[in-house]
Design a protein around this nucleic acid. Structure first.
Lengths: 329, 329
DNA sequence: ACGCTCCGTGTAACCGGTTACATGACGCAG
DNA sequence: CTGCGTCATGTAACCGGTTACACGGAGCGT
């Protein structure tokens, strides 16, 4: 059975392809009789329309391309879940591709999407502005998340890293902490860089001493950095990691050496992944799924109107738990 | 700029579309001169090939459709990550759609993939065998994961629920536990049903009393079920949840009522999500990412050869942690 | 009877690529 | 000089849908 096409259906129903197409798409200028013959033939042949061909002639695919960096688990699933929720609500599919580290691979991945999707959502915190511009296929509506793009060049959603960091530092300052360590994400990553810069500034404002070192957003790197810190006898009473993963690694290192949290060192992270709640980690809640949902909604909404190039700030929120503040019970 | 096509490139390079196509695809029967004129024209026009059109004429899309049920976070991200890893390694994209609970929606989702993908990976633990058969588009190679399909009807990968459950029950039995409670997943879900049946059987073999109640694989349901159990004064010294989420909920309920784990009640889960490790939960490690990777690999491998209808068993492995066995330290 | 509109249907072009086959230029052996 | 093979290139059909436009018959008014 070599895959029935609409022409096979037409032949079998003794009608033209035009009528079959109209019947299948629910046009009203089709006689009852023809409609029945079509559904009959479809059933007999097990015909399923070829979505690819349909997209080609309609110039509309009902799919959205999603290009993400190689994300740590929780963040990835949350953002995809948000997009998927909104997409399936509005009848779209998601075409997924991960963006490899190198810029040329990014270009390849993005171009492979041309003609398969109606729009793109791109998250590329590690690309330079011009690399990104070169890689984006022209003429495909896009929404950028946390990229280093010039404001106003594309529709974009940014996380308000500065507000999140300020809330944490103020909180730590209110607790009377004076010597902070910040484990930043990898240099070159927008979020890592923005957060680190904000930490430096907020600490200066609050009159807190601040030491910054680098991890790579993975749990292990947080653990290693913290271990090294303790090894060389650095004194600090607060540790703020660039994301929750690293904060969790730090917690392990601290506990392994018998440093009490939060008495000796208060610990905070960023993202509020589900794990954070279970471990009682103070953090900045990002509502990742909402971020994805919003990006998709914005992209789809832009289809009707002209292009959208607004910058939107996604506001995070401080969540205080046991690793700072008083220990309950 | 209304989207350059290959014909525009041909016109600009003063060549035919055939030559342009050949040049772009790296055929060797193209003169050096022509090749240069093509790359020149491509650059000037900002031409990007239309992947949809290409797929149509090649009858090959380089994309794999992935249809998953509405999964809880960790499991979802792990399995997609595994697939994505293998897919990008082999030059494929992933077209994602979540399978809604109702069978007709499943059918719609699967059909929407026809003509857009070269193959399908379907995970539908809640569909009946004939619903699934009806929904699968004929002629599209597919790999099924944890479905209620007849053996040998399609290529399938199953989790060895029985082996996993047996390992847990034996472990609990070796610890001297005599009265077990199993919080199963939702009735109708293959994995939930298989695990519950295996629990019943293994307990009988081991001479353990066993009570089974139902949750829905969400953390809260595990918490509620456990709370209700304690409320009505049921006596038990072991609790085995159908997945880690519910086990974690159960842990909270137990701790909230001052029941000590593992002294009074030993607790185990299933899946080994990252959270399990952090909470010291004894569980059955599934290596979810590997499962996804394997499904994709198997699908792609089947393209060369004829169709594949083998059943494959993915073996899980017991991981003993603090919530059973002796408490270390 | 004629001409009008209305409506269901069919023909064929089109979406943007690929590729079988045709063509014409060139080189070389007989 | 002819005949043949080689090779780069071009023409047009094709993938499987959609749809502008043409068409023919029915129903209606005059």
């Amino acid at each position: 059975m070599p895959e029935a096409t609409i022409r096979d259906v037409a032949r079998r129903a003794k009608l033209s392809v035009a009528t079959v197409s109209r019947a299948l798409n629910g046009f009203d200028n089709v006689s009852e009789q023809a409609r029945e013959r079509v559904t009959q033939a479809v059933r007999e042949l097990g015909y399923v329309p070829h979505a690819g061909a349909r997209s080609l002639s309609l110039a509309r695919t009902n799919a959205i391309g999603v290009v993400l960096p190689d994300l740590h688990g929780e963040f990835f699933s949350e953002i995809v879940r948000g997009m998927d929720r909104e997409a399936s609500r509005r009848g779209y599919l998601l075409l997924l591709s991960n963006l490899h580290a190198r810029a040329e691979q990014a270009q390849l991945a993005l171009r492979a999407m041309h003609g398969r999707v109606d729009g793109l959502i791109v998250m590329a915190p590690h690309l330079k502005s011009e690399e990104l511009a070169a890689a984006l296929p022209p003429g495909v509506p896009s929404v950028l998340i946390n990229t280093r793009d010039k404001p106003g060049a594309h529709a974009a959603i940014h996380l308000d890293n500065v507000a999140g960091v300020r809330a944490v530092i103020e909180h730590l300052s209110n607790l009377g902490r004076k010597r902070l360590v910040h484990i930043a994400g990898p240099a070159g990553n927008v979020d890592a860089d923005e957060r680190a810069a904000a930490v430096r500034e907020a600490c200066a404002t609050a009159g807190i001493a601040c030491e910054i070192l680098h991890g790579n957003f993975e749990e292990q790197s947080g653990e290693r950095a913290t271990a090294a810190l303790l090894e060389r006898g650095h004194e600090f009473d607060a540790l703020f990691a660039g994301n929750d993963n690293m904060a969790i690694g730090a917690l392990q290192a601290l506990r392994a050496r018998g440093v009490s949290v939060p008495e000796q060192v208060a610990v905070a992270g960023f993202d509020d992944i589900p794990l954070a709640q279970h471990l009682g980690l103070t953090t900045v809640r990002v509502r990742i799924a909402e971020l994805g949902e919003r990006a998709l909604a914005r992209l789809l909404d832009s289809f009707g109107r002209g292009q959208d190039r607004g910058d939107e700030l996604h506001a995070p929120e401080l969540v205080v738990r046991a690793t700072t503040g008083k220990v309950k019970r």
